[in-house]
Design a protein around this nucleic acid. Structure first.
Length: 425
RNA sequence: GGAGGGAUGCCGGAGUGGUUGAACGGGCACGCUUGGAAAGCGUGUGUGCGGGUAACCGUACCCAGGGUUCGAAUCCCUGUCUCUCCGCCA
């Protein structure tokens, strides 16, 4: 969420933000709502002050045994107007709040302007595309032949986009989760959490999924108002919602595995085969809380932590810096990492690494006292490390052999009970 | 799921519908005292919003949201969380 004062102090900045992020928000409406709000508050508080003073007088008089009827009548008459103003204040503030929740975070200075994904900047890459002396197959074909994913029955159980891993496929999924968590906790200094995967509305608002993305969320509303998390970012960032953190404990590095649930409404028809786009998937996430001064340094470190996952798995990938139009609603700056998958012949997004600056902290009310003892919002960051399905695709397709077997990357073998190659039974 | 008890400031803990932003104790900060420290004494110690160049003033906040009242931390209703007891259960 943005700072309300911006309507008064820097409306141009807000207009620029909306333009860069390619969203159309009526900033003038915010300005006039803010004016109205202050006008109402001024009158309201004046009357409240008067009421407090006269009521106090009533108390004194009554205690002294004097007649206070006249004063009581006076306060009563003010009361009506106070009620009106309170209602007005409430409705103005609600409208303003709603508008503010729909204004995206401003992009960082060095983020290139652009309309969408085609204008993202490739800034780096690691490794090489694997070379084959045969025609590499797509993962869905390999998985079916090796009997490590049962696509048909997964669909029977839950519908399209739900994956049923089997045998060494299930084991590989579990191996990846454990490998990532161990890497982050033992080598990168993160604290592991295991969060609930169903969260309340406040948590979803805190990280920014609601209101803008509510349609994409799975919602359990029969007797509760709970949401299946679309990423562990939601519970993990909200751990400190409405808290005052100690400066000495910052930065905080958290990591967590979770299943992730996304409707992906409207995305039907695109990349729907196999594991490319699913409604439920596994992911290991990293989240950081830090002081504003260090958040861009932390972003680079976070990026390195995410890239380490890909490098240790020996997967060729490229790094993109997202342009303003493709940046997510809450992000100020974001890198995407795309692993190359030889079977489908594409780069697949496996991680997204973002600095949200104080945008989420403001929504979720996460603060700390800075070096000058001043209360201010902390900065939050997060990165996948990594999302499993597409990482799985890259591994399966890149490590396939002519006979249809798959070599298990070295770092995963200890997690696979020593299995070095996944072969046909 | 059923029955009861609770929710107050950084912590503990009072609180009669009126002058309570909130007694008292502890913590913490600053000052005095000391060779230094402890003890002691004194002062101070929240956040949001509005106004003001500022000192500061006003307002709201005693779990949350409604209500009663001239006036609510205090009374009423609803919700959330928590504790105790009973039932059910991986």
């Amino acid at each position: 969420m943005i700072d309300m004062k911006l309507f008064r102090e820097e409306p141009e900045k807000l207009r620029k933000t909306c333009k860069l992020k390619r969203v159309d928000i009526d900033i003038d409406k915010g300005i006039s709502l803010d004016d109205k709000r202050r006008e109402v508050i001024a009158e309201l508080e004046g009357l409240l002050a008067e009421r407090n003073a006269v009521s106090k007088e009533v108390g004194t008089k009554k205690k002294a045994g004097e007649d206070a009827t006249e004063l009581m009548e006076k306060v009563k008459s003010i009361g009506g107007r106070i009620g009106e103003l309170e209602n007005e204040k409430k409705s103005v503030e609600e409208a303003l709040h709603e508008l503010m929740l729909s204004i995206p975070n401003h992009p960082a200075e060095d983020v290139p302007e652009g309309d969408g994904e085609n204008e993202n900047l490739e800034i780096d890459s690691w490794g090489e595309k694997p070379v084959f002396d045969f025609e590499p197959k797509a993962h869905w074909e390999l998985c079916e032949e090796l009997d490590i994913i049962d696509f048909k029955r997964g669909t029977k159980l839950s519908g399209s986009g739900f994956i049923l891993y089997k045998g060494l496929g299930a084991r590989l999924e579990r191996a990846l989760i454990n490998f990532f968590l161990d890497l982050h906790t033992t080598e990168h200094g993160y604290t592991e959490w295991f969060p609930p995967m169903l969260v309340n509305r406040d948590s979803m608002i805190g990280t920014g999924q609601i209101p803008k993305m509510e349609e994409d969320m799975y919602h359990c509303d029969k007797d509760d108002d709970l949401f299946l998390i679309p990423t562990a970012e939601v519970p993990i960032t909200n751990i400190h919602r409405s808290e005052m953190l100690e400066r000495e404990e910052l930065p905080l590095y958290y990591t967590a595995y979770s299943a992730c649930f996304r409707r992906e409404a409207g995305a039907a028809g695109k990349d729907t085969r196999g594991l490319l786009r699913v409604h439920e998937f596994n992911k290991v996430e990293m989240v950081k809380f830090c002081e504003p001064e260090t958040s861009y340094d932390e972003l680079e470190k976070l990026r390195a932590n995410a890239e380490a996952c890909l490098q240790k798995l020996g997967l060729h990938y490229r790094t993109l810096k997202l342009c303003t139009g493709d940046l997510s609603f809450a992000a100020a700056k974001c890198y995407d990492f795309e692993a190359y998958a030889a079977g489908v012949g594409k780069y697949l997004e496996v991680s997204s690494c973002s600095n949200f600056e104080d945008f989420q902290a403001r929504r979720a009310n996460i603060r700390y006292k800075n070096a000058d003892k001043k209360t201010c919002f902390i900065h939050t960051l997060n990165s996948s490390g990594l999302a499993l399905p597409r990482t799985m695709v890259a591994i399966i397709e890149n490590y396939q052999q002519a006979d249809g077997s798959i070599v298990v990357p070295e770092v995963l073998r200890s997690y696979m009970g020593g299995v070095a190659v996944i072969t046909r039974k």
